[in-house]
Design a protein around this nucleic acid. Structure first.
Lengths: 349, 349
DNA sequence: TTGTAGGCGTTATCAA
DNA sequence: TTGATAACGCCTACAA
């Protein structure tokens, strides 16, 4: 309830500062915003002094009202699930800060309704840019809806950048997920594995679909038949890797290798294997995805696919914050197989 | 640059919606904000329809101008360093979302100047609450400065909650860091260890000071002399644990145990030990701090101190978002020694 | 139940 | 170089 202004400058706003300094609002504003407009030394100091005295903190809302979009980037993570998201956020923060932007963080948690709610909130906040991190849903209705929402935002003057999504007409900084998965499976195949279990991410996500695609390509190129029975669904979390491994092993005891679509799940596989008395890689080869820091710490160190998280983050935020207008630019960052010690030739055939 | 309004309702603002619906601004506002004020069914629908048609997105800045503080919580992390911060953020997001609050995330990265800059930015944004996560600097000037800044904010109507800081007159949700460290060292002492290496966090942080305090208490209670030579400084990161372990081992080859003040550093110790051909715990006992998820995955599973990250986060954000006015409340959440397999009796005395 | 009008804090335009 | 003053978009007391 806006109390009737009792005196023109009783608050702690610009007006108060101006009055205290004995200058006009305009002058005070010019001084405090570091405008290029010249202000005499004397007045400038009086304003600065008054501001200091009154503990003046500019009201960003008010400013944005006259200025338009704000230097805030809305980061919408689809799923803050694995260690990876954290590296992503860290890298984001770093670049944003340098550019003087603030970060608004949201986690949709694979909930479509929540995702759109957040998108709306970002638009309401008039954030200058929105980053969609992580993979999206592999669904056409969803895609259309999302596209509509984002187009509206872009029309308002916002920028949109996506990491690892596809087919939407916005700037994209994605990694070569398909290629990475293919390389992983081929590595296993090359070593002689034929019975390879796969623990996927959630079926509905494009990230999962991509990795699956890479896997099928690898099998095809080696002429090894695809076996649906050797595929179980996980959620990228460690616990689902553990459960998935157990299901796989009881379903197909002749398994010689497992490809987990995230390192976290691979760690779960390590646990399950240990619990069963299986040694890695002697009894079971394991390969992960993402190359998170812990991958090299476990013993044996995990063979995995590097995922350029920080690079993606940096590319994305720079596109938001920088001056370049790379609309619809599509950048594909390569992934790479990191061979460590968790893969060996299969024990017996 | 605010273009002169060419027509009273050409934009996509409330005015446009109102005009389109053939109602007054007030009515449109009442409908779209879900005000309790009654509006006839007919008008309500016309407004809703117009809003839909025009892709109306309310301007949060404008709203906040008349309404005051906003439902945004500014989260200032002092150091987004270990896996822990991530759990913290996750928990924060969860509660905030339920309450309809947005999160503004900032990472001061142990840089005082940056910390204050962010604090200012939060105030400028008129965020309704500020959470200071992680430990602060163990320095009186800093504390005074911080206290001043936050007091100004509180005077403006903001809420402040700190996790793991001390001696400042604001609500505090902290963990019993001292007790946890003491328990860790006592556990080692009890098992017969006398030459115990310690890898600390950054000296300047209160979190480090607290753990150090706990450690000295433990030594005192067992009448074991403190040896400065057995203490090296780390930064809570894995790599510093690795380096610290090596320094420690070359400095004091008779070491039988190491207490790392973060799990991440303990993981580094694992690496260093493995590289040296030392087996854990047979040749070297290790104990960490935080009980991050990976602690149980390594072999041997890491004995560590649980740190109620999620609980702290939840407490903090609830204090911000909820209605309770728990000014200056100080909540101390207990920590707990989690005994796993990385500690054994010392090999030889 | 609906509408009118003033105010929220700042910036920008235009005179002086 | 300085200062009035009109936006900016929305909310709400008050009047109708």
């Amino acid at each position: 309830m806006p109390a009737k202004r009792s005196s023109p400058a009783d608050g702690s706003g610009l007006a108060a500062v101006a009055e205290r300094a004995g200058v006009s609002l305009a002058t005070a504003s010019r001084v405090l915003t570091g405008s290029t407009h010249r202000v005499s030394r004397d007045l400038r100091e009086r304003v600065l002094h008054a501001a200091e005295l009154l503990d003046y903190v500019p009201n960003a809302s008010a400013r944005s009202l006259s200025v338009g979009m704000r230097k805030i980037v809305g980061v919408l993570l689809h799923d803050m699930v694995d260690s990876q998201s954290y590296d992503y956020i860290r890298a984001l923060e770093d670049v944003a800060d340098r550019a003087g932007w603030l970060i608004m963080l949201a986690n949709a948690g694979r909930n479509i309704e929540k995702e759109f709610r957040y998108l709306r909130a970002f638009r309401a906040e008039r954030v200058g840019a929105i980053i969609l991190g992580g993979s999206g849903f592999d669904d056409d209705d969803y895609r259309a809806h999302l596209s509509r929402e984002l187009s509206g935002y872009v029309k308002q003057g916002g920028r949109v950048v996506m990491s690892a999504r596809h087919g939407l007409p916005f700037a994209e900084f994605a990694a070569d997920t398909v290629g990475g998965a293919q390389a992983a499976i081929e590595h296993l195949l090359e070593r002689g594995h034929r019975r390879i279990g796969i623990i996927t991410g959630p079926r509905a996500m494009t990230g999962t679909a991509d990795r699956l695609l890479g896997a099928t390509r690898a099998f095809e190129s080696y002429d090894v038949p695809w076996d649906d029975n050797l595929v179980v669904e996980g959620d990228f979390r460690r616990t689902s890797g553990l459960a998935g491994c157990e299901r796989l092993l009881s379903r197909a005891p002749d398994l010689t290798a497992i490809f987990a679509m995230s390192d976290d799940m691979a760690f779960g596989v390590y646990e399950a294997a240990t619990a069963r008395g299986l040694r890695i890689p002697a009894d079971l080869s394991v390969i992960g995805y993402n190359d998170v820091a812990m991958a090299r710490v476990l013993s044996p160190p995990l063979t995995t696919v590097s995922y350029p998280t920080a690079e993606l983050a940096r590319g994305a935020i720079e596109a938001c914050v920088g001056n370049v207008t790379l609309e619809r630019s599509q950048v594909m960052v390569p992934t790479e197989l990191i061979v460590r010690k968790s893969v060996a030739a299969p024990r017996s055939r």
